[in-house]
């Protein structure tokens, strides 16, 4: 096994390394998540500092989306703790979590497709209705990132192009004035050019002080646009560290495409993949 492979326990250390723990905005501490009989997450830990950009990468079905859902309250972890800004939010309903300042743009965008762009933004502002912020100023501020949406304000969200829909998704998430923006599969179904535009916008937003957590199937894109990253495989964190270091790690590619198949003349082997084993005990 390569030396950079870390266990769950130490991944926690790596990821908090270099971050003052007091500055941690979000701490995910060894959570398990189950879908009925299926265990989707096994002791996943993660920390995000204020204003940081973090990526969660891994093959399909590795548990990335599940992790995001657990953070935003769509799923309740069966074990472990999640704290945001020092307060526990694990198991809290999603409609309460968003009021604390976490905005989640789910995979597949999940816009209100039958509603207009403007109405989608109004819905995004829902959690802030009583927070004493003016809807108009918030909307104008958000729209500055997405001039195209201004033109489309009265069009139904379902009629937008894929890129515009994704922009609306980000805009809608920003309407709640979040301190942590979670984006799931920004690139899904979009042309590379559009994706890089969207990543530029995320960088802008991040510069304004919002922490960003992205999940991305395309690992190189994700690592190029974040400070730190964690690699999930089969519901476990198998690698974590600064994004730049991970790009060079051979274990990363193996996580995605497997080891080389045996040569035809070589003796056969058991079809076993040497994924890193965890040291912590599963209970």
């Amino acid at each position: 096994m390569s030396p950079s492979v870390v266990t769950t326990e130490s991944s926690h250390d790596v990821i908090t390394d270099g971050n003052d723990s007091a500055a941690a905005l979000l701490t995910v501490d060894a959570i398990d998540v189950h879908y009925g009989p299926i265990q989707a997450l096994r002791a996943v830990s993660l920390t995000i500092g204020s204003g940081e950009r973090v990526a969660l990468v891994g093959a399909n079905g590795a548990g990335k989306t599940t992790t995001l859902r657990a953070i935003s309250g769509l799923l309740a972890p069966t074990r472990g703790r999640i704290t945001f800004d020092g307060e526990p939010i694990g198991g809290m309903a999603a409609n309460k979590v968003v009021q604390r300042g976490i905005a989640h743009l789910p995979e597949g965008r999940e816009l209100f497709f039958g509603l207009s762009v403007e109405e989608n933004l109004r819905a995004g502002f829902w959690s802030q209705r009583r927070a004493g912020r003016a809807y108009k100023s918030q909307r104008d501020q958000v729209m500055d990132h997405f001039p195209i949406l201004r033109e489309r304000a009265h069009q139904a969200a379902g009629t937008l192009s894929g890129g515009e829909q994704q922009m609306l998704g980000v805009a809608r998430a920003l309407m709640s004035n979040p301190r942590l923006l979670i984006v799931d599969e920004l690139s899904l179904g979009l042309a590379p050019k559009i994706v890089s535009q969207l990543f530029d916008i995320l960088a802008e937003i991040n510069r304004a002080g919002t922490a960003v957590l992205i999940v991305e199937q395309f690992v190189h894109m994700a690592l190029a646009n974040t400070d730190r990253a964690a690699v999930l495989a089969k519901g476990e964190v198998v690698l974590a560290g600064p994004s730049r270091d991970l790009l060079a790690d051979p274990q990363l590619i193996a996580t995605y495409l497997g080891e080389q198949a045996p040569k035809p003349d070589e003796p056969p082997r058991r079809p076993s993949r040497r994924a890193p084993k965890r040291t912590s005990n599963r209970t």
Binding site: A191, P192, K193, S196, F218, V219, M221, L223, A224, Y256
Partner: peptide
């Protein structure tokens, strides 16, 4: 590999590939 891992940066040749149908 490109289909699975994505690209690190925007390919120069993709300018006219607006619908992203093919890498």
């Amino acid at each position: 590999i490109a289909a699975y891992l994505g690209q690190a940066e925007e390919p120069k040749s993709a300018a006219n590939d607006s619908n992203g149908r093919h890498i």
